[in-house]
Design a binder for these strands. Structure first.
Lengths: 266, 266
DNA sequence: CGTCTCCTTGATGATTCTCAATGCGCGTGG
DNA sequence: CCACGCGCATTGAGAATCATCAAGGAGACG
């Protein structure tokens, strides 16, 4: 689980190149903007697994970006049932929103050991009105659109997908999102989650997650090994669950290598 | 179903006071802002039930507000399964978002006969940077936050609620949202939807929606009559499904009468 | 070596779906 | 006026999916 961190791009130095990679995949950043993103890494904070990163109903904290580790946004019902709304992956923002809403709509929780950076300067730059950070503005905006798209995908998964489709779809989403920050190869990605966490994300019981996963293995669609998932037949799987990566941002003017983030990992 | 429209506030004149009522419940509007909102009513458009109001993947149309009738945002799977993401009620916006994303993330469809107005001027005013429409800006922002909150509620419903809880929770949400625009009394609200539409929203089959609804009736929680739902025991129902109205906006400085939109209907 | 967490498995039951048929209201055309 | 069709609500029966309960196993760690 926690060996995940040792696989990120630069194990011991700043992780903030993950954020840079994420944002520059969404818009072209000037050197000044890139420098601003990298400079964020100085205000780091480490949280243990289970720590609350952003509280529901509390006054808004400062926005953060996730440098390493996995987190989620979730809601807990009075009787203990939990629903994970979205996973937050390295390079993703937490509480970065131009709305000055005083209440976070959900609780952000660390699912592994997590490193965050303060994103206040990023937020201020991206939301500047004078156009001096155009690239950042459109990158942050596109990241927000992707977050929205992921929420809608989650609704469709929970409402109209079978257990198999849900799991296949989620795995493909995670592969795609991780690939966008260089953390997944074409077929392999880290999955530092217990089956209980997967259950809470997919709206299933732990036992049924276990059996569904076995079925995917028996069908030759995936393999799992030491905290990693290998997708053996991406096309078949995408066909089964009707997965397609969200089309957000600038479809045409974008760097062709960035069009399929699953290729140029090298 | 379509007699719903005859119950809105001003049956034959402009419906745009619905939008004004909605936005002024979220922030204090100046007279100039109120006039701007009312002026939107001039560019009206009528759509029949089933019409597509905003297409997925298409280039962004102009933003609209719903003056009367019900619509929804939905996704359709290749095999015909449909998931309704959210309901769009009178006073709600469609495609009103400061993100210049070229692709709508879902399809907006009219569920009844619907009247919309062009909201381009509203969008431009609310997103002005020079602070001359502060009230509009914060009202539109709060409306967006409420939309987000409804999406998250939908995820929890689909992921972790039983069929009964889902239906009870959705009914309470609809009552609350309709009350905010003066279209629901404390216990009664219009529900111009077929059971098939409810099924697509709740992630259930038509048959099971039917049986769940009967159960709610037998339990003495609701009554249904000619396109209306009457909630007989709001407290019990809210306790069953853990419903609480979203806390968004300015909790303190707000007009106390607006705090509980279910009271001051008169 | 004991304990803890997590994964796995079996058995049983509840929830929910599918298929199929019936009824009911309503408009339409004969 | 009445038969007919159509959309929608309702009901029954049977099956599939998924949850719950309970127990065992494998690995990590002190």
């Amino acid at each position: 689980m926690s060996q995940y961190e040792t696989h990120s791009i630069s194990p011991r130095s700043h992780f903030s190149d993950v954020v840079l990679r994420r944002l520059s995949g969404l818009a072209t950043l000037s050197e000044r903007e890139a420098a601003l993103v990298l400079a964020m890494g100085s205000q780091r904070q480490v949280h243990n697994s289970g720590a609350e990163l952003f509280g529901e109903g509390h006054l808004r904290g400062r926005p953060k970006v996730l440098l390493s580790g996995w987190a989620c946004r979730c809601r807990v019902l009075p009787d203990g049932r939990r629903q994970i709304l979205t996973f937050t992956l390295p390079g993703d923002a937490i509480g970065l929103c131009r709305r000055p809403s005083p209440a976070a709509l959900s609780t952000a929780v660390a699912l592994t050991k997590v490193v965050t950076a303060d994103a206040t300067t990023l937020a201020e730059a991206a939301f500047e009105h004078d156009g001096q950070y155009e690239g950042l503005a459109s990158a942050v905006s596109a990241a927000g659109a992707l977050d929205d798209a992921n929420l809608l995908d989650q609704i469709v998964r929970l409402g109209r997908h079978t257990a198999h489709e849900r799991m296949a779809h989620l795995f493909l989403e995670l592969r795609w999102r991780l690939a966008a920050v260089g953390l997944a190869s074409e077929s392999r990605f880290p999955l530092p989650l217990t089956q209980e966490v997967l259950a809470d994300a997919l709206g299933l019981s732990i036992v049924h997650v276990n059996r569904t996963m076995q079925q995917l293995r028996r069908d030759g669609l995936i393999e799992t090994r030491s905290g990693y998932v290998e997708i053996l037949q991406p096309q078949t799987m995408a066909a089964i669950c009707d997965f397609s990566p969200p089309q957000v941002g600038r479809p045409l003017e974008r760097d062709p290598r960035a069009a399929d983030p699953l290729r140029p990992i090298a």
